[in-house]
Amino acid sequence: MPEQHSTLREQRRAETQRMIQRHAVRLFTERGYSATTVTDVAEAAGVSPMTVYRHFPTKEDLVLVDQHARILAERITATPAGQPLVSRIGRALIDSAATLTGEGDDDGDGAADRRFLLARLQLMISTPALRARHLDAHYALQQAIVDALGDEAGDPDSAFQAQAAAGASLAALHTALVRWAEDDGRTRLPDLIAKALGAAFGDDVVAPAGSAEAQ
Rank of each mutant, 00 (worst) to 15 (best):
residue 171 A to H: 02
residue 110 G to M: 15
residue 150 G to T: 08
residue 128 P to K: 10
residue 156 P to Y: 06
residue 155 D to G: 08
residue 135 L to T: 13
residue 170 L to I: 03
residue 114 R to C: 04
residue 104 G to T: 03
residue 157 D to M: 14
residue 102 G to A: 14
residue 113 D to L: 15
residue 168 A to S: 15
residue 123 L to D: 06
residue 120 R to K: 10
residue 105 D to S: 09
residue 163 Q to T: 07
residue 126 S to T: 11
residue 108 G to H: 10
residue 157 D to I: 13
residue 167 G to N: 07
residue 107 D to N: 14
residue 155 D to C: 10
residue 173 L to W: 02
residue 111 A to F: 08
residue 172 A to K: 00
residue 124 M to G: 08
residue 104 G to D: 11
residue 166 A to E: 07
residue 131 R to C: 05
residue 118 L to I: 11
residue 148 A to H: 06
residue 170 L to D: 08
residue 118 L to T: 09
residue 125 I to P: 00
residue 122 Q to W: 02
residue 108 G to W: 07
residue 102 G to K: 07
residue 134 H to C: 12
residue 165 A to P: 00
residue 162 A to D: 03
residue 173 L to Y: 02
residue 113 D to I: 01
residue 152 E to F: 01
residue 103 E to L: 13
residue 142 Q to A: 14
residue 123 L to S: 04
residue 110 G to V: 12
residue 105 D to R: 01
residue 120 R to V: 03
residue 111 A to Q: 14
residue 148 A to P: 03
residue 173 L to N: 01
residue 147 D to R: 03
residue 105 D to Y: 05
residue 143 Q to H: 10
residue 148 A to D: 06
residue 134 H to F: 11
residue 121 L to R: 01
residue 167 G to A: 04
residue 102 G to P: 03
residue 139 Y to F: 14
residue 115 R to P: 06
residue 153 A to I: 06
residue 119 A to H: 05
residue 102 G to Q: 09
residue 109 D to N: 13
residue 120 R to M: 06
residue 112 A to L: 15
residue 102 G to N: 08
residue 159 A to D: 03
residue 166 A to L: 02
residue 144 A to V: 10
residue 132 A to I: 15
residue 130 L to Y: 02
residue 137 A to Q: 12
residue 165 A to H: 02
residue 107 D to T: 15
residue 122 Q to C: 00
residue 163 Q to E: 15
residue 129 A to C: 07
residue 149 L to W: 00
residue 138 H to P: 01
residue 121 L to G: 05
residue 152 E to P: 03
residue 147 D to K: 05
residue 130 L to N: 04
residue 108 G to R: 04
residue 117 L to A: 11
residue 117 L to I: 11
residue 107 D to Q: 14
residue 130 L to M: 07
residue 168 A to L: 13
residue 139 Y to I: 09
residue 136 D to K: 11
residue 146 V to W: 00
residue 149 L to V: 04
residue 160 F to Q: 10
residue 139 Y to H: 15
residue 147 D to A: 08
residue 143 Q to D: 11
residue 108 G to N: 05
residue 154 G to K: 11
residue 161 Q to P: 00
residue 173 L to F: 01
residue 166 A to S: 07
residue 163 Q to H: 15
residue 109 D to Y: 13
residue 168 A to G: 01
residue 155 D to W: 12
residue 133 R to D: 03
residue 147 D to L: 02
residue 165 A to F: 00
